[in-house]
């Protein structure tokens, strides 16, 4: 057992060492600099470590375009919004740096967002949305290089979720290289059902933006030497139904059996006595001896 434990721990350590990079991996969400927007988005902040994104072979055309000596280049793309079913109109601009990694992949970093303030017309529209409990919709191009790319990614939220003091918004952009897969738009906090109508006291946006990339899946554990020993051992262990003790299985029979045996013994002990009582005195001394103590007790 001691050896076994030792082995287990050794392999666990080995595994830890082997997989430490993937285990230590943290989400590489990037937060917009708080000083610029003055936000309370600290919850989401994670150390901006090296992005563990996979690097897909970017389309040749895009790579060509960015093959200039400067590995980073600045790009811009627009956030557009719509009120209910209205058409989309520009609402803000994202600026980001496009980082080209060694093996040709490109990733977006250092996302910044500048939101246009609502015009009075837009304020009216937004108020109408609030009254009707309708959707406030935004969209982003699905490819930041050749906007709008194939399509726009849309997200929407019930307008009543946004107003706090001002208008709070939380934008999560899921990217894959230069592609934007999806954008999730919503309130940073909760938005309980039975949304109450509440007009914002000031018409300025508090924006949080988060850039998200794909995580690496954890690898299947590999026990190289242990496949033969430990693996099968574990399997064998679980294959067995949990062992019950004899008592747990048959207590319902054992208890009456015990009673009966006890009874039978008492009877057997009493029987000679009866005989003795019936036939005067015992002819067998052993029987007398055996029956002695209990009768002594009774005669008390």
């Amino acid at each position: 057992m001691g050896v076994c434990v030792f082995q287990w721990s050794v392999f666990f350590l080995a595994l830890l060492a082997a997989a430490s990079s993937s285990l230590a991996f943290q989400s590489d969400e990037l937060l917009v600099d708080d000083d610029e927007f003055g936000l309370e988005g600290g919850v989401q902040r994670k150390p901006p470590e090296v992005a563990h994104t996979r690097s897909p072979p970017a389309a040749t055309s895009t790579r060509k375009r960015f093959s200039d000596p400067d590995p980073d280049s600045k790009i811009q793309f627009q956030l557009e919004h719509a009120f209910g079913d209205s058409d989309f109109s520009p609402a803000g601009t994202f600026t980001a740096r496009l980082k080209t990694s060694n093996h040709g992949g490109q990733t977006l970093t250092k996302l910044r967002f500048s939101r246009n303030a609502f015009t009075s017309e837009e304020k009216d529209k937004f108020s109408n949305l609030l009254k009707a409990d309708d959707f406030y919709r935004i969209r982003l191009p699905s490819n930041v290089l050749n906007s709008p790319g194939r399509d726009f990614v849309i997200s929407s939220v019930k307008a009543r979720c946004l107003p706090r003091d001002g208008l709070d918004e939380h934008v999560v952009i899921h990217t894959d290289g230069v592609n934007i897969l999806a954008v999730n738009y919503g309130a940073p906090g909760s938005c309980p059902y039975r949304r109450q109508l509440k007009l914002p006291s000031k018409w300025s946006f508090n924006s949080h933006t988060v850039l998200k990339n794909s995580e690496q899946a954890p690898r299947a554990p590999i026990f190289t030497e242990e496949i033969l020993g430990g693996g099968e051992d574990g399997e064998g262990e679980v294959a067995k139904p949990p062992e019950k003790s004899l008592w747990a299985k048959y207590w319902m029979y054992l208890i009456p059996l015990g009673f009966i045996i006890m009874n039978a013994i008492t009877q057997a002990m009493n029987m000679p006595e009866e005989q003795a009582a019936g036939q005067g005195q015992a002819q067998q001394p052993t029987a007398v001896q055996r029956g002695g103590p209990p009768s002594a007790v009774r005669r008390r």
């Binding site: 897909p56 399509d151 990614v153 849309i154 997200s155 929407s156 894959d176 897969l181």
Partner: peptide, 13 residues
């Protein structure tokens, strides 16, 4: 009406 959309890059997914 469309409320949201997710667009996977056609060359990689």
């Amino acid at each position: 009406r469309d409320v949201w959309s997710v667009v996977f890059p056609s060359d990689t997914e």
